[in-house]
């Protein structure tokens, strides 16, 4: 019995070549970002704050809900009666929806900032794009590095946002726990779970890619050799 080795088939070869090419474009995009350290860092920081804020607020709400649940268990709580608890719960529901709304607005802001950064990058490389189109580059080929730029911005901002949330929790946890202990509430603060952290970073990278994609669609078609 003979088995044909799949690794040597031309299809695999061309796939590998394409993969390697994609990889190098991705790395080029990353290097280009690192070449303008200040503006890249500033943009990343703004984006990270926009991403970290809703995550932080969500964590705050989750922890307040936990506090309320504990207070409810201590029926003889000197802090809140049944009525107070109900009102607090309603307030948290409102806060939850507020954070949702804020998240959507901030996500739009993130789209705008990354989109604008990619647009500037397209403008800066206008001459290069023209030459590429003249020697037969497709729109897809020309847009790839810009898509990677958006992706790297999103990914980077997501990771920094994660660090910011972690750092704020680290700073705020000790006094907060102290306060709760003085109210005879013993609990541990809930941080971002692994899944939520992953979701944050993936959403952020996705937002970056989306922003770049929309910008490329809007701007790249207009750059035609004339």
């Amino acid at each position: 019995m003979t088995t044909k080795s799949t690794t040597s088939s031309p299809a695999i070869f061309s796939f590998r070549a394409q993969f390697e090419q994609h990889q190098s474009v991705a790395v080029d995009a990353l290097l280009r970002l690192l070449q303008q350290p200040l503006s890249t860092l500033l943009t990343l920081l703004v984006l990270a704050i926009a991403l970290a804020l809703p995550s932080f607020l969500v964590l705050l709400i989750v922890n307040l809900q936990a506090v309320l649940a504990m207070l409810q268990e201590q029926t003889s709580s000197p802090l809140l009666n049944a009525e107070g608890l109900a009102i607090s719960r309603l307030f948290l529901l409102f806060a939850e929806r507020f954070v949702w709304l804020l998240s959507v607005l901030l996500a739009l802001g993130v789209l705008g900032v990354i989109g604008n950064t990619v647009r500037l990058s397209i403008e800066n490389r206008r001459a290069e794009i023209l030459v590429m189109k003249l020697v037969g580059a497709t729109d897809g080929w020309v847009s790839r590095p810009f898509l990677y730029t958006g992706f790297w911005y999103g990914l980077g901002a997501g990771i920094i946002a994660l660090a910011l949330v972690g750092l704020s929790l680290l700073i705020l946890a000790p006094p907060l726990l102290e306060l709760l202990r003085s109210l005879s509430l013993v609990m541990t603060l809930q941080g971002l779970s692994f899944n939520s952290a992953l979701l944050l970073v993936l959403c952020s990278a996705g937002l970056g890619l989306l922003a770049a994609g929309l910008t490329v669609l809007r701007n790249l078609r207009n750059i035609e050799p004339l």
Binding site: K133, L134, V135, G136, A137, T138, D139, W141
Partner: peptide, 13 residues
């Protein structure tokens, strides 16, 4: 329009 890049590849300018 989508065929344009492929067309241009056969021309050196």
């Amino acid at each position: 329009r989508s065929q344009l890049p492929i067309y241009r590849r056969q021309i050196g300018f």
